[in-house]
Simulated scan of single mutants.
Amino acid sequence: MIFISAEQIAQTLGYADCIEVMRAAMARLSSGETKQMLRQILPLDQGRMFGIMGGTLGPGGPFGSKLVSVMPHRAEGGPPSHQGAVVIFDPVSGAPLCQLEAGMVTAIRTASASAMATDVLARKDARILAILGTGEQAWHHACALPVARPFDEIRIWGRSPDRARTLAEKISERTGIACASYGDVAGAVADADVICTVTGAAEPILTAGMVSPGAHVNVVGSSFDGPREIDDALVAAGRFFADSRASVLAQGAELRHAMASGAVTEAHLLGEIGDVVLGNVPGRKGPEEITIYKSLGHIVQDIAAGYHVYEMIRKEGGQ
């Protein structure tokens, strides 16, 4: 078994490749080829959590598990909020092949999955991208989404104006796309074609009245049943898709809250993004529709991304 560090993952797992790995993996999930456990979350103190995930890419494919700690109140400049390990096993011998640093795998595959969903659901003429949040996922989403779609403008909002300005400058330098910070959510998303919520918000920061007709929204920040980033009215207003139907019905806070309030029923969840990729469920039907992709993240994504990295490193090493 080899250990693959965060630095190796960052050097090997490019966004363009990972977007296509996510497209294939999520299609396999929706076709029923893969198997996965619902994410198990053990609450710790002070809002911290320990997560356990396990699954397989399907018959003849690799299988594995992810163990991750979530420390949402980390100090600025400190270690990442998500730390852990992804262990992947050989499908033939059953031997562990590799252990990957989980934080970097999670960061790149999550943003790449959102980029893939954006490519599938956003209007073809989408040009303005708004990102709500200033953490690790905000950075990776700003890097990944322009790989899938061309954008003329990126907007950043965060609770800390200084962090938002710093991130906007960094994104402009990295992408070559004009990027500016905004002091309020409504201003940041006004007339935005694509919106990504990647915050640690406990209560909705994005409401239906802020979102323009025809926008696509990636809802990413909340990973368990509790904190919500968008309100019930926005859930109800959009064509709603999940990364994993079972996971979102069990742990997707925004949809579950909207169902509990009576704003929508379970039928409002139209399908998984993999269903749209496969052509089994229509995605966007018209230019004025709002589309929503709810991302919880799942082990199939981790195994697919991790195994891709493993194979690339093995090829480079001539093994």
Rank of each mutant, 00 (worst) to 15 (best):
T106W: 00
I9G: 09
R165I: 09
E316D: 11
S247G: 10
G187Y: 01
M37L: 13
A208F: 04
D231C: 05
A85Y: 15
Q251S: 00
V276A: 14
P59I: 09
G318C: 10
I205W: 00
E272L: 02
V86L: 15
E7G: 14
R109D: 02
A253L: 11
A16Y: 06
L44W: 07
M259W: 00
I88W: 08
L121H: 09
G47P: 10
G262C: 10
A144P: 04
S114M: 14
G94Y: 14
R109H: 06
G274R: 00
K66P: 00
F241K: 03
I9A: 04
A113Y: 07
T207F: 11
F50T: 07
H82E: 15
E272P: 00
A304E: 09
G183P: 07
P80L: 14
H82C: 13
F224L: 06
R109V: 10
E311V: 09
G262I: 15
V276E: 15
H308R: 08
A242L: 02
Y293K: 00
E76D: 12
R39N: 03
V185R: 11
V120K: 08
D125A: 15
Y307H: 02
G283R: 00
H257L: 11
L42G: 01
R74N: 12
A122E: 04
S112F: 04
Y15T: 14
G94N: 11
V70F: 04
Y182N: 06
E101F: 05
A164G: 05
V264I: 12
G55D: 01
A192G: 11
P227S: 09
V21N: 00
F241N: 04
V105T: 11
V105P: 04
M53R: 00
A233V: 05
M71D: 15
N218H: 04
D225M: 10
G271N: 07
V220A: 02
T199V: 03
I9V: 02
E173R: 13
A10S: 15
P80Y: 07
F151P: 10
I303W: 06
D184P: 02
S222Q: 01
H73Q: 06
A178D: 07
M259H: 06
A138W: 01
A113G: 06
V300F: 06
V264W: 08
S222C: 15
G78K: 12
G54F: 14
M1K: 05
R165Y: 05
A168K: 08
A263M: 05
V87F: 10
M1G: 08
G135L: 13
H298G: 05
E101R: 04
Y182H: 08
I128E: 10
A148S: 04
H257G: 08
S295Y: 06
D225V: 03
T175D: 09
G238W: 00
V235R: 02
L57A: 15
G103I: 15
K124M: 13
W157S: 09
L278A: 13
L206T: 13
I292F: 05
V220H: 03
T34H: 02
I290T: 01
G262T: 11
T34S: 09
V300K: 06
P282R: 14
S69D: 04
V189C: 03
P227K: 05
A267I: 01
H298N: 13
M104G: 03
S69Q: 09
S247T: 00
A186C: 12
P161F: 04
P287R: 08
A164T: 07
L145K: 01
T175Q: 11
G252P: 12
R23N: 14
Q83M: 15
P146M: 11
P79G: 06
